[in-house]
Design a binder for these strands. Structure first.
Lengths: 246, 246
DNA sequence: GGCAAGTCTGTGATTTCCCTGAGAAACGCT
DNA sequence: AGCGTTTCTCAGGGAAATCACAGACTTGCC
């Protein structure tokens, strides 16, 4: 089921109306906390485990609807953990976290069953989006909940990554897409540059804060070019997106 | 839950009707007291801690609904304190205080879970507004409490930063917005120039006191222009805002 | 009416913030 | 390896916001 929260955010719920449950398995505490915070903010119920042992235990007790699994754990090989998790939770989708240079073909085999993976360092928007996709497709949440964000005549499909305004297709790069998704998931709300940086860029990004300005500028060229603008600057506060007609 | 207090101020309460609890963590006593005063005035219950050690202890005992955390503490790194606080209070939102020139990369990742931050020197209005937003969104207070202030036909949305009178949109600068918010949060009450300066301008503002007059004048041009005035001068006392029809 | 204290507002200097072009570096594909 | 694409840095220009100053105006009082 998909409901609109009082803040205007859409959130996933299970068929019985209870919150979605997600198990986070990572040994780096900072990452684990970062993920837990972000996922809780989605309205999900989170349990975290720091090693394979605890993960299996938590899976048994907590019965999550999805698992986020770091493939580099101290006590067991990621594949072993995966195997044991599968025995506990045969139908539950898994989002793997892997190092960027990790051999990707091994992962490719794993995701064949409908699972997915994200490479470290990731952006929170990416993790949240992938998880939403997995949960949606697994049937833990209502399947009819769809993957299209709409603000005015602007549409963004989270599954196909297609974006269009007033019927015209628009090609966006990966970063542009994530930025637009974040804006569209928070329409009519001012988002500060820090918030945007924290959600859309990866957690170890150390660059200049003006990348946000830069990408806002790119988005405007593609989305607002020659039309009523939808992306607005609130000087000293941040940016927001809203339907053109207002 | 949102109730209207006898003074006509709206205040946040927890679902059980008890006051919201906020933990203030700052080592500079002047700042800590300033904040505690302002937050108590909101009707919240405040506990303060001067270092990381005390903060964790207070978190355990006091069980606050939100935390204000200075990132520069004498005994521990701000991030360390944050980690320990998170372990005690996994779902509690945090408002970070940071130096303005502190490179923003230390903030990276911090606001990820829906937390927020304010740079020093801050204005009390800003801190209070951000805290209200955090508490509102965290669900510690009733979620239906919304972000719109209304006085007569004047409306101010704290999320979208939009202001309108009688349906007409009005563009305000950041300072104008904060001033109007302060007035609207205290309708029909005379606010002295000193009070306004203390709440709306940052605590180290050293300028001329007549900035308040100046900004009142700006606001009148935008809000009262050609209409029944809502902003009134009480000579020798201060200013107040009230519905036009009275 | 005349005065003084208090308030309002026009002008312009300064600062802050934002936008964007140009190019370097990293990436991905063949 | 080579080429096109994407991401990001840097820096200049420009616009907006903030504020000081000063003179005009209002109000209350004698």
């Amino acid at each position: 089921m998909t409901t609109i929260s009082p803040q205007g955010r859409t959130e996933l719920l299970r068929p019985d109306g209870s919150p979605v449950r997600v198990l986070v398995v990572d040994d780096e505490q900072s990452i684990s906390e970062l993920l837990s915070m972000a996922l809780r903010y989605e309205g999900w119920q989170i349990r975290s485990a720091g090693d394979g042992q605890a993960a299996v235990q938590a899976a048994r007790e907590f019965r999550p609807d999805a698992v986020v699994l770091d493939m580099m754990l101290p006590d067991m090989d990621g594949l072993t953990v995966l195997g044991r998790l599968r025995r506990e939770l045969p139908d539950v989708p898994v989002l793997f976290l892997t190092a960027k240079d990790a051999v990707e073909d091994r992962i490719a085999g794993l995701t064949a069953g409908g699972d997915d993976y994200v490479t470290k360092p990731f952006s929170l928007e990416e993790v949240v989006a992938r998880l939403r996709g997995l949960i949606r497709r697994s049937g833990a949440a209502d399947r009819r909940s769809d993957s299209v964000l709409v603000v005015g005549d602007l549409m963004l499909d989270e599954d196909s990554h297609e974006v269009s305004r007033g019927g015209d297709n628009i090609h966006l790069t990966a970063t542009e897409f994530e930025l637009l998704r974040f804006l569209m998931r928070n329409p009519r709300r001012v988002l500060s540059k820090a918030q945007i940086l924290d959600r859309v860029w990866s957690y170890d990004f150390g660059g200049q804060a003006n990348v946000v300005e830069l990408y806002i500028s790119y988005l405007r060229r593609k989305i607002d070019a020659g039309r009523e603008p939808m992306i607005h600057t609130r000087r000293g506060a941040g940016y927001l997106i809203k339907p053109a007609v207002s």
